[in-house]
Amino acid sequence: MAVPEGHRSGVAGTTAPTSVIHVTSAASITRSGSPPTIVRVVAAGVWLLFLSGPSLELVHHAEGWRKYLGLGALALFICLYLWTFARFAGTRSSYPENPKTVVPQWLCIAGLLALVAALAPGARDESLTALVFVAAIVVAVLPIRQGLTAVAALFILTELLGRLVTGWSENGDGLAIILAAAATWAFRMALMRRQQLVLAERELGELALEEERSRIARDLHDILGHSLTVIAVKTELAGRLLDVDTERTRAELQDLERLTRDALADVRATALGVRGIALPGEIASARSALEAAGIDPALPTVADEIPSRWRELFAWTIRESVTNVIRHSHAKHCTITMCDRRLSITDDGDGPAYAATDGRGLSGLRQRAALVGATITTGSGPGGKGFNVSVEVPS
């Protein structure tokens, strides 16, 4: 920092640092947003060189008990100063929301001031340099209002002692207090913003993790619900055909083996986050599952007119809706119609009985639709019978 005009010269007389907490590199910031303890201690300790002024005054000019009291007080001052920075500065505990929770910080500051008082008889006006370090401490560890008030009090105390005590000179220490407090405050604000950024990144990471867990749970529910329902239906069909049509039974058992392998592959792909489903494949799978359950399907044969960005949503809707039809509706017919902006699945079963409230599957569908701006509506089918699920996508 710039030395004020008329200030004492030489190492012993150089003004105390403008900031005791100095900027550390981005690599030295921990994941919590705070510098490691060793970094805080080193950053604060390098400026202890400026206490050479009072130390030389004690060694060369103080005598008797004043000399030994001053040297002991200076050594304790340095230890307490470093410990306070290591314990409080640059950590979340140094920025308490409740000013009443800063009793330990105030005790340390009171200890530092007591040591400065013990230093004064031997070091005389050189002891005022130590108040610059106290100013940096109060700005670094106290709440805003308390810190600013303490800095103002230290400035006034330094000015008064330098002018009123016979033989003492303020020698620019008041200005040094202001500059040290301002520089320390600037770094404190930068560090607080860094901590807030780290906290925000952590919260975003937790939200992303929770969303991924929800996606996997939703996908597994839909995959297993559909696959196990179709497997159960085909197993029942194979049991009925066992003594009637051996070839048809063998075909159904082979289909069951394929479905089981496909379900296992789908679960693995979902867990790895690489799974996608195809609309034409879901239409074909729905037709096969409905026929196996004895439900007459009226399904489209192609899906070319559906925009690619809506095909996955339509495919999931068909999978979940057809699963519900097979498991719950007791329907005889199921109709699927779709165009570029709308998909509708309608059955003639016990609509109100099994669709009075959304199950996990329909809730998952609503979440999928909301993510892409689409809308899911449910209700009775034509004439108040059966059940209908419709998806409308934005244009």
Rank of each mutant, 00 (worst) to 15 (best):
A86P: 08
G45C: 12
A75T: 12
C79K: 10
R66A: 15
N98Q: 05
I78V: 14
E57V: 08
L48M: 08
E97N: 11
N98W: 05
A44M: 13
L71C: 05
S52D: 09
G64F: 05
N98G: 00
F50S: 12
R66F: 15
L49D: 11
F50L: 11
S94G: 04
H60Y: 10
G70H: 02
L58C: 03
L71V: 06
L76V: 11
L49T: 13
I78C: 13
L49Y: 13
F88A: 00
S52W: 11
F50P: 09
F77N: 03
A44Q: 14
L51V: 04
W83P: 08
P54V: 07
G53H: 04
K67H: 03
E97K: 12
C79G: 15
A62S: 04
H60F: 11
K67F: 01
L80V: 14
P96W: 04
P54K: 03
R66Y: 15
G90K: 00
G72R: 13
G70I: 04
W65Q: 15
F77R: 04
E63T: 12
F50M: 13
T91N: 06
A44D: 09
R87S: 02
H60V: 12
E57Y: 08
H61S: 08
R92G: 05
L56G: 07
V103C: 06
K67C: 04
K100A: 10
K100W: 10
N98Y: 05
T101H: 06
T91K: 09
A89N: 01
S52Y: 10
P96V: 05
G90V: 00
L49A: 15
L51W: 02
A43D: 10
L48H: 07
H60R: 11
Y81Q: 02
I78W: 09
L51G: 01
P96M: 04
V46C: 12
L49R: 15
E63S: 11
R87Y: 03
A73I: 05
L71I: 09
